[in-house]
Amino acid sequence: MKKFLALLAVIALGVGIIKTLDNNVSFPKYGEAVIESRVSNFYIKKNVTEENSEVLFGGSDYETGSANFVTSIVANYRSFDTLGEVTVLFISAFGVALLLGSKEQKRLELNFKPNFMLQVGSRALFAIIVMVGLYISIHGHLTPGGGFPGGTIIAASVLLLYLSNDKFRTNIRGFRFMQSITGALYVIIGLVGLFVSGFFLENFLGTGIVGNLFSAGIIPIVYIIIGLKVGSDFSIIIDSFLTKEVSK
């Protein structure tokens, strides 16, 4: 009876949502939105300050030279928001380490024992996964993905090592160091933009040819920094979750 009532409530809510949003002025049919009348048009054409023009693959000297326009929004037009996101991740990693950390720590005992094949196989996989994560971070301005998924893939490889060996611990001091250094570097790049071009996080390098690996100014640099930072943040969180205090 309870489940039936819940189902009825969900169906009523769903019908209500569809009736309110369907064929509305602000909510056109799926796939039929008029892009020309929206703000996103400026970002897709990669031309905010001047007149709108087509951006072609292989052309040069555009406002932001990244082929992937999501990246051009995340790491160029809205880079300040990304700085905020990275700060939120930093604070959450810091909070987890503050709550769960202590001076002497050891690994949590697992209920299962990883066998030899798993240990060797995961070490071989580790290198490949780290390489894929770095690749996705570095090619963030050309292909889908970028710093956040890339960094999470790096952290996933660390999690794989933790999963396959119940004595293993990463060099957590190194990750702490990298977390602080990359966070500082992001702000420093922003400050350099402030002094060179007059705006915080301004793209002060040349944008180059669309589609090249070395293009789009500071976007690849920022995304590599974000990748390393997210990877070290998540690795610290994983380490905090899977260790415990040494009881005397």
Binding site: V70, I136, P144, G145, G146, F148, P149
Partner: peptide
């Protein structure tokens, strides 16, 4: 982009 992030 969303697909890659969701997958990871």
């Amino acid at each position: 982009d969303v697909a890659v992030t969701e997958a990871v």
